Amino acid sequence: MDVVNDLLPLAAMMLVTGAVAGVLAGLLGVGGGIVIVPVLDVALSIYGVEPDIRMHVAVATSLTCIIFTSISSARAHHQKGSVDIRLVRAWGGWILFGALAGSVAASSVNSLVLSAIFGIVALIVALKMLLPADNITLSDDIPTGFAAPAPPLLIGGLSSMMGIGGGTLSVPVLTLLNQPIHRAVGTAALFGLLISLPGAAGFIVSGFNDYRLPPGSFGFVNLIGVALIAPVTVMLAPVGARIAHRLNKRQLSTLFGSFLLLVSLRMLYQTFVG
């Protein structure tokens, strides 16, 4: 009974995390990892997981949850015609490669490094989305030629290191490349699947036989967290997608940026202060 009572607060926290992450997945085109990672990091610290691997477990578990969330979110956006299949075909392979490389690199660095990467990237993206820069673009369209692989490789690599589905990076990158915000959000939802599959696989392999892992772990992926979070995110992602299509471009950008700003400041405080 004591074991059950000890696990109940963690289970409740994970269920709430799944609910918030699911709505945000559909609303912002993110895989929910921008919520799952920081909350799981706190939960794992409460339950005594060693700091050296805590972010690895949070990131790997988040990526596994995103596999299911992205399918639900991408389907909802595809039904509304906001997934750019042409772009998915052009960037898909590069994103897959970047995600696998990012997960391998992340497994070899300290958790504080992952926290710092998470916070800094989220802060940069938040400022971009909050500033009145909707009409600022870097090009008239998606780059081609020699520079074409750079954006998807960056998105895939950094996203798998952060445990996010790619929307956090894909949405601002695509808007800078002159893509409409609603199409960027919808396409980012499908990118989440391309990032989470190889990313989770890399963390599973690299985390095998680590004695510091919490109970219920498969490599760095904690299956208890996946079992509690993933179903709720899948159920609620379509709710967020419906809300997204009721907002205008500026409202959606401001909402995205405000949320990321709060998350990034919290993660940077934890990394550099406490």
Score class of each variant (00 low, 15 high):
D2I: 13
V4D: 15
N5K: 15
D6M: 11
L7R: 14
L10V: 15
L15I: 15
L15T: 14
T17P: 00
A19H: 08
A21M: 10
G22P: 00
V23D: 06
V23N: 00
L28D: 05
G29F: 03
G31H: 01
I34N: 03
I34T: 11
I34W: 00
V35G: 01
Y47L: 07
I53T: 02
M55C: 03
V57T: 10
T61A: 06
F68Q: 12
I71A: 11
A74K: 03
A74P: 01
V83Q: 02
V88L: 15
G92E: 07
G93P: 06
G93C: 06
I95T: 13
I95H: 02
A106L: 06
S107G: 09
S108W: 09
V109L: 05
S111G: 06
V113F: 10
S115I: 07
A116R: 15
I117Y: 07
I117Q: 08
G119Q: 01
I120E: 08
I120F: 13
V121D: 05
V125W: 00
L127A: 11
L127R: 08
L130E: 08
L131Q: 07
P132M: 07
A133H: 14
N135I: 01
L138S: 06
S139N: 14
D140H: 14
I142P: 11
P143T: 00
G145E: 04
A147C: 10
A147S: 13
A147M: 12
A148I: 00
P149N: 00
L154D: 01
G156C: 07
L158C: 04
L158S: 06
S159A: 12
M161I: 14
G167V: 10
L169Y: 00
P172I: 13
V173D: 04
T175M: 12
L176E: 01
Q179T: 15
P180K: 15
V185G: 04
G186L: 04
A188T: 05
A189H: 06
F191A: 11
G192A: 03
L197Y: 06
P198S: 11
A201N: 07
G202I: 09
F203T: 04
G207N: 05
F208M: 15
N209D: 13
N209S: 15
R212G: 07
P214W: 11
P215Y: 11
G216W: 04
G216H: 08
F218W: 10
G225W: 08
A227Y: 00
L228N: 00
A230I: 01
A230E: 03
M235T: 11
M235H: 07
L236N: 02
A237V: 00
G240M: 07
I243G: 05
A244C: 12
N248C: 05
K249M: 12
Q251M: 12
T254W: 12
G257L: 09
S258Y: 13
L262F: 13
V263I: 13
L268A: 10
L268N: 08
